[in-house]
Design a protein around this nucleic acid. Structure first.
Length: 434
DNA sequence: TCTGGGGTCCTAGGACCC
DNA sequence: TCTGGGGTCCTAGGACCC
């Protein structure tokens, strides 16, 4: 019996990168369509809908306000960015807000200076996740080879999809774009190119709601004029170093000898820079992957001190451990490496971790070892962030292992966490400070 | 008044083993 | 007293991405 796959024509590789347009903001606009076209910034805070409704019931007691009438809330009622105080950053901004220079990852206080009149809305993660699943399942029905790159991005291999070669991928991109809009009401931008590297850049060419097709011969005209920072993998540090050598565009990068790049950027990164500047990238579209680590972290509203704020810190620490344990259990993983992360008031970060002999998903065990890690860092400085991480993940008991006894152990342990007194926790946390 | 939270991957030194 | 090479694992930090 011949088990070889049938011989296929050697089709040119067509890889798409798809990016939902201003995803978090677009999700909010579905709920509040009256904000369409206005500058809206997403980030920080808790859900506003209840506040808005309460305000409306006060102002217009004669009317019947409910969750289903959110689209009738007057624009004047929405909170503005002006006067924002806190440590939040913008998750995304509508295109109207981007005109003012507001962008994602920008501190909201800075954003308020650029565009105080912008409407500020919090993220509704549940709804964002629901729509994320919806757009991805829409894609998979049309083109099954899809790589998940986060909540609002995917790569798709068009090469062997029926019709995937038509107009070099444009026809299929149009179909996917229309189907996603029909299913979710949100637009996306798609780039189709010979590989992931170029496709990723191409999806940015025509935003929002755009399609860009890049062919191998377009390298010099479309890719080389771009700044190096547009390469996925060249961040602010590498870009600054490139600039210091007079390299600003991908074309200028391509002019450098491979050996020169290796000399200045290391064997691996230098060689990679050379490859990408010539548009070469053979990475496959990976449809499945296992997580490597899971973590929870939080930035405090104000910097905390290990001694003066020990109660608060201890409670936060315990909660982080419980959250990580719950995440692991819910997703069916356990991990061998337990670690902590601290960020001091000057933004310097430190990490400590320890590897156990066996994997765990138990809150008590995680907290005990994370507590030991905490004792290995400087706790005399003010702290702005605390995180707990579990790495070296394994999937325990995939077949034939009794999960009943296992989960019973877990729940009794969880109870113990809550019953442990605050003093016990802080003693465990910072005993040397007593 | 700077700078969230969740990840992945890479590097480099040291321990330890053969 | 001087001094091999591999190979692997652990740990800390950092760049980068969404």
């Amino acid at each position: 019996m011949n088990t070889d796959p049938p011989i296929k024509a050697d089709l040119p590789r067509r890889i798409a990168h798809l990016d939902m347009d201003a995803f978090f903001a677009s999700v909010e606009l579905l709920r509040y369509p009256q904000l369409k076209g206005l500058p809206v910034v997403i980030g920080g805070g808790r859900r506003h809908a209840d506040d808005l409704l309460a305000q409306l019931r006060n102002t217009y007691p004669e009317r019947d306000w409910s969750e289903t009438t959110l689209d009738r809330i007057p624009v004047d009622f929405f909170p503005r960015l002006a006067g924002y105080t806190g440590r939040g950053v913008a998750t995304t901004a509508t295109y109207a807000a981007r005109q003012f220079g507001v962008g994602s990852a920008m501190g909201l206080m800075n954003a308020a200076k650029l565009c105080p009149q912008a409407i500020l809305l919090p993220v509704d993660f549940d709804e964002v996740r629901r729509i994320s699943r919806l757009f991805k399942s829409t894609i998979i029905e049309i083109a099954p080879v899809m790589e998940d790159r986060g909540i609002d991005e995917v790569y798709i291999d068009f090469t062997e999809v029926p019709g995937g070669q038509r107009e070099h991928g444009r026809a299929l991109a149009r179909l996917i774009q229309r189907s996603i809009h029909q299913a979710t009401g949100i637009t996306c931008s798609i780039g189709v190119a010979p590989n992931k590297l170029i496709a990723k850049m191409a999806s940015e060419f025509n935003k929002p709601n755009g399609i860009s097709i890049v062919m191998p011969d377009d390298l010099q005209t479309l890719i080389w004029p771009l700044p190096c920072r547009k390469i996925n993998g060249v961040g602010p540090k590498a870009d600054a170093r490139l600039q210091s050598h007079g390299i600003h565009t991908i074309g200028e990068l391509a002019e450098r000898e491979r050996s020169w790049l290796i000399e200045h950027f290391g064997k691996s990164y230098g060689a990679w820079l050379h490859e990408v500047s010539w548009g070469r990238d053979e990475r496959p579209v990976v449809t499945e992957s296992e997580p490597v680590s899971m973590s929870r972290e939080t930035t405090f509203e104000r910097d905390l001190h290990a001694v003066r704020d020990r109660t608060e810190l201890g409670a936060i620490f315990t909660r982080l451990c419980e959250q990580v344990a719950a995440d692991l259990q819910r997703k069916g993983y356990a991990g061998k490496t337990i670690g902590i992360k601290l960020r001091y008031d000057n933004f310097q970060s430190v990490t400590r971790d320890v590897t156990l002999t066996g994997a765990t998903d138990d809150a008590i065990t995680i907290r005990r070892h994370a507590g030991l890690c905490l004792k290995r860092v400087d706790l005399t400085r003010r702290i702005r962030l605390l995180g707990v991480r579990v790495g070296k993940l394994v999937k325990p008991g995939t077949e034939g292992v009794s999960t009943a006894g296992y989960s019973e152990t877990q729940s009794s342990n969880s109870r113990t966490v809550q019953e442990t007194s605050q003093d016990d926790l802080t003693n465990l946390l910072f005993p040397e400070l007593d």
